[in-house]
């Protein structure tokens, strides 16, 4: 127990330290921009990892929740002039409720049927966002007002870097605590075997719903803030490909590892920028890296690397 607590704190502190010193090594705003995008993806992935990695439930529709949050902020704060914080909260509450309502029937489904159902929900959301152009600006998306809080406008990469850094830190801290709580242990039981967990008296359904709602809300909040940061939101941010990308980040970094999800999000946000040097070979290289990583490190990047470290030093 002491060890787990220790490891958890070390990881969190290490991540905090990296976030704190990283800007010193980033030569210009473009790098900060990539770091910020990686941060937003990481926030969503940490939530999604709770669902996939710990509750063992796949979702191919989380970009839909991200999109609803983003458009809630865009429409409410822009078109209707709400204070951005209120718009963000409204989006999060709406997404939470939506996730809660669909969670019960959907989480009854198993494996690929669940994947299909979440994929369907995500696609329906993105079609609505794309089609209701009167409200959402259609396929070209809409511009979003800057984020204002207490009369201060959040503006520029420097400022947003710290906002996203803080958000990521908070989300990771929350997840680590959740995983280590009694509920977290119940969650891991769910992943292991649902029937077994129920036999020993764990209310798996309730936990699954809770995690589903929580991960959806994480995505929504990240979406809202992203919309304000980017100043532009398009339906592509809510579509099937984005959902797949998010799941890929989680699995790539390492399922059932909070820091793995963060690493996956960072690496896969960085990768397309790096691969521009391969010009016409970009896609081939990206596909090959995905395949090779998953074939040779089926547990994902971070857990596999961590396992390389001799067990003796781990204690």
């Amino acid at each position: 127990m002491q060890n787990i607590l220790h490891g958890r704190l070390t990881g969190l502190l290490a991540m905090g330290a990296i976030i704190a010193v990283l800007p010193a090594f980033l030569p210009n705003n473009f790098y900060l921009d990539v770091a910020i995008l990686a941060g937003f993806n990481a926030v969503v992935c940490v939530g999604l990892n709770l669902l996939i990695g710990y509750a063992g439930q796949i979702s191919l529709g989380h970009a839909g929740f991200f999109g609803i949050g983003a458009y809630a902020s865009g429409v409410l704060a822009g078109t209707y002039g709400w204070p951005p914080v209120l718009a963000l909260l409204a989006g999060a509450v709406f997404v939470g409720l939506l996730a809660f309502v669909v969670a019960k029937p959907i989480l009854r489904l198993k494996g690929h049927y669940l994947a299909m159902a979440t994929l369907g929900i995500g696609i329906i959301v993105s079609i609505v966002l794309r089609t209701e152009s009167g409200l959402t600006g259609g396929p070209d998306g809409m511009t979003v007002e800057p984020f204002r809080i207490f009369g201060v406008e959040l503006y520029g990469e420097r400022v947003w870097y710290w906002v996203v850094g803080a958000l990521l830190f908070a989300v990771v801290w929350l997840s680590l605590n959740l995983i280590d709580s009694p509920m977290g242990r119940a969650l891991r039981a769910v992943h292991g075997s649902e029937v077994a967990a129920e036999v020993v008296g764990v209310d798996t359904a309730r936990f699954k719903v809770l995690v589903f709602v929580l991960s959806a809300v994480f995505a929504s909040v990240a979406g809202s803030l992203f919309a304000h940061y980017a100043g532009l939101i398009t339906p592509a941010k809510a579509d099937f490909f984005k959902s797949i990308e998010l799941v890929t980040m989680v699995v790539f970094g390492g399922m059932a590892s909070t820091f793995g999800a963060v690493v996956g999000a960072v690496v896969l946000t960085l990768l397309p920028q790096l691969l521009t040097m391969f010009q016409d070979y970009q896609q081939i290289v990206l596909g090959a890296i995905l395949m090779a990583t998953m074939v040779f490190m089926p547990k994902g990047l971070l857990p596999t690397l961590a396992a390389l470290i001799p067990a003796r030093r781990r204690a």
């Binding site: 030569p27 210009n28 705003n29 473009f30 790098y31 921009d33 990539v34 995008l37 070209d140 998306g141 980017a230 532009l232 398009t234 592509a236 941010k237 397309p272 920028q273 521009t276 970009q282």
Partner: peptide, 21 residues
């Protein structure tokens, strides 16, 4: 030259890269 793959958000990100980097 950067290829945005037809995605507006990628175009924005590459524009930043062209300007800043």
């Amino acid at each position: 030259v950067y290829d945005d793959g037809g995605a507006a958000d990628k175009a924005a990100s590459f524009t930043k890269r062209l300007i800043e980097s």
